[in-house]
Simulated scan of single mutants.
Amino acid sequence: MALFKTKTDMSVAQMQLKIPNHIAIIMDGNGRWAKRRLMPRVAGHKSAMNTVKKIATAASDLGVKVLTLYTFSTENWSRPSDEVNFLMQLPIDFFNDFVPDLIKNNIKVQVMGDIEGLPDATQISVKNAIKQTAQGTGMILNFALNYGGQIEIIEATKKLAQQVANGEILPDDIDETTFSQALQTGNLGSMAAPDLMIRTSGELRLSNFMPYQSAYSELYFTDILWPDYTAENLVEAIESFTLRDRRFGGLNDKIESEP
């Protein structure tokens, strides 16, 4: 279901909000959501996928250009095998069900993380979704799957070191731009860094999620558990973002000049 009933509704909301180009979300609290309902943890993960569909549609309606979702971290492999197996099936079920809607809404799927480290069936489903939505020119729905931020930085460093060893670049050629391009978000160009980073469930940390890219992201934490997260909650986060003064280490002359 779309967030807005008419294009007029959407236009009014957009005029009132400063829409971030790139929103990243740490979708936390699935297990606790299930536990509170005396349900197995996997029930929370299953419900979480329905929330992904709603939030992806809402973000697209609002005009967000990139939505990155922390889906499965490299640390999540340490969870019980039954839960991990269920989590590996979720992308298959999700894409089988949701790809037609993504195509309809002109949304393009991308994935960051060690995709080759996933089970074969999960890999096939992910790669098919990327291929099927490749012609989308609207929002990029970017899944961080089998992703770890520290590993990403290490791999980018190795990549640049190899280029130096091959004589392709000099050490002095490595700057913020070249390093950013070596990261898994390099293909996003100027939109690689999230403008707004949201975490649900009340936890106040980034948990190894995009540590380099989030250096100047606006952070927004909410106690709402991810399965309960709604389009209205997303708008509330964007409203908070709209009211903030992003200076990127500099000064806002107007504010600083006031008594």
Rank of each mutant, 00 (worst) to 15 (best):
A144Q: 04
Q162D: 14
I174C: 05
A156T: 02
I130H: 07
S78Y: 08
Y70Q: 02
S81C: 12
N76L: 04
A129I: 00
P80G: 04
S78C: 10
V66S: 01
G63P: 09
I124N: 07
V84F: 04
M49F: 13
T137V: 15
P80Y: 07
L160Y: 07
A134C: 06
L62D: 03
T137H: 13
M88D: 06
F72V: 08
L160C: 09
E155L: 09
V52K: 00
P171M: 01
K108F: 05
N105M: 14
G148Y: 03
P171I: 00
F86T: 12
L170V: 03
S125I: 11
F72S: 11
G136M: 08
Q162H: 13
I151M: 14
P80V: 01
A144T: 04
T157L: 11
A134R: 09
F72E: 08
V164E: 01
T74P: 02
M88C: 11
G117M: 08
L145W: 01
N85H: 13
E168D: 15
I115Y: 13
T71F: 05
A182W: 10
P80E: 03
V84N: 08
K159R: 12
D114I: 03
A161W: 01
L170R: 14
G149V: 08
I169R: 00
E83G: 06
E116F: 03
D97V: 03
V126T: 10
D175S: 01
A59P: 06
L69H: 06
I153L: 15
D120A: 12
M49V: 13
Q150F: 10
D97H: 09
D82V: 13
N50L: 15
T185R: 05
V99W: 00
V84K: 06
I151Y: 11
D93F: 13
H45C: 09
L183Y: 00
T133W: 09
Q163I: 00
K108D: 05
L160M: 09
K46T: 15
K131V: 07
F98S: 02
K46L: 13
A134G: 07
F94E: 02
I153D: 06
T137R: 11
N50R: 14
M112V: 15
F94W: 04
I103M: 14
L183V: 02
T57C: 13
K53M: 12
D82F: 11
E155F: 06
A56C: 06
A156E: 03
G148M: 10
Y147V: 02
Q150K: 15
K65M: 07
K65N: 04
E168I: 15
F72W: 10
G148C: 04
I130P: 03
K104N: 13
K131F: 09
N85S: 15
K159L: 12
G63R: 01
T185P: 02
M139C: 05
D101P: 04
E83D: 07
